[in-house]
C-alpha cells in the first residue's frame, strides 16, 4: 500500500460550485468509536453556519443506505478494518472530489489498530467465542464482514486529500478544516493543531 498522501496544498481541487449553491458533504464512520462524529456534533452553533453552505448527503447520523454520487467533500472517521470498509472506501474515493481522513483512527489506525499485534483468528475467538454468549463468526454466514489481518489507515488504501489528526480532533481543528474546505481552500493547520492524540 503505502499510498502516497499528496499535499492538499497543491493537489486538492477546490469543491466545485454545486448546482443549488451548496456543497455536498458526506461523513462516514468506519473502524472508529464515533468519537470524531461526536466532536463534529460539538461544533454546536457552527453547525448552522456549516449547513447554510453544505448539504449533508450521507452520514451515520442521517441513515442513508447507499453512498451517493457526486459528493464534494467526504470526512472519513475510522480505520480500515474489514472487507466492507475496503469496499466502501473505494466507493467513497470514486464518488468524492475530496476525501479527508478525519481523526487519528483514519489517519494512523490508532486505537482500532491496537489489535494488530494479535492474530486475527485468535481475536475473534477471544472476543466472541470465549466471551459471553456466541456470536456469528463471519466465516460461514453472510452477517459479519471478514476482518483484515491488519487494520490500516485510510491513505494506505485510497488516495486521501487532507488529514485532520486528533483523538478526537477538537472542534477548532474540525472547523479550521471544514471552513477551509467549504471555501475551496487547502487545509492548513498550525503545528499545535497537527498533534496526534
Amino acid at each position: 500500500m503505502a499510498r502516497k498522501q499528496t499535499n492538499p496544498r497543491e493537489d486538492a481541487a477546490p469543491a466545485a460550485p454545486p448546482s443549488n449553491g451548496k456543497i455536498r458533504l458526506a461523513t462516514v464512520w468506519m473502524g472508529g468509536c464515533s468519537g470524531c462524529h461526536m466532536s463534529f456534533l460539538d461544533l454546536d452553533e457552527k453547525l448552522l453556519d456549516l449547513f447554510a453552505q453544505a448539504d449533508l448527503v450521507y452520514s451515520p447520523i442521517a441513515d442513508l443506505k447507499e453512498f451517493p454520487e457526486n459528493v464534494d467533500v467526504t470526512l472519513v472517521e475510522g480505520a480500515i478494518a474489514n472487507v466492507d470498509h475496503v469496499k466502501l472506501a473505494k466507493e467513497i474515493r470514486e464518488r468524492s472530489k475530496i476525501v479527508v481522513s478525519f481523526g487519528d483512527c483514519a489517519v494512523t489506525g490508532n486505537v482500532t489498530s491496537l489489535r494488530n499485534r494479535l492474530q486475527v483468528d485468535d481475536l475473534l475467538t477471544k472476543v466472541y467465542h470465549e466471551g459471553p454468549g456466541s456470536v456469528p463468526h463471519g466465516d460461514d454466514d453472510d452477517i459479519m464482514p471478514a476482518l483484515l489481518p491488519r487494520v490500516i489507515p485510510l491513505h494506505q488504501l485510497i488516495k486521501v486529500d487532507a488529514f485532520i489528526p486528533g483523538c478526537p480532533p477538537d472542534t477548532d481543528r474540525i472547523w479550521t478544516a471544514v471552513s477551509a474546505l467549504l471555501a475551496g481552500q487547502p487545509v492548513e493547520f498550525e503545528p499545535e493543531m497537527r498533534l496526534f492524540g
Binding site: A2, K4, Q5, T108, N116, P153, Q156
Partner: peptide, 8 residues
C-alpha cells in the same frame, strides 16, 4: 507530518 506513508 500529518500522516505516515510507511507500514506500521
Amino acid at each position: 507530518m500529518d500522516s505516515v506513508r510507511y507500514d506500521y
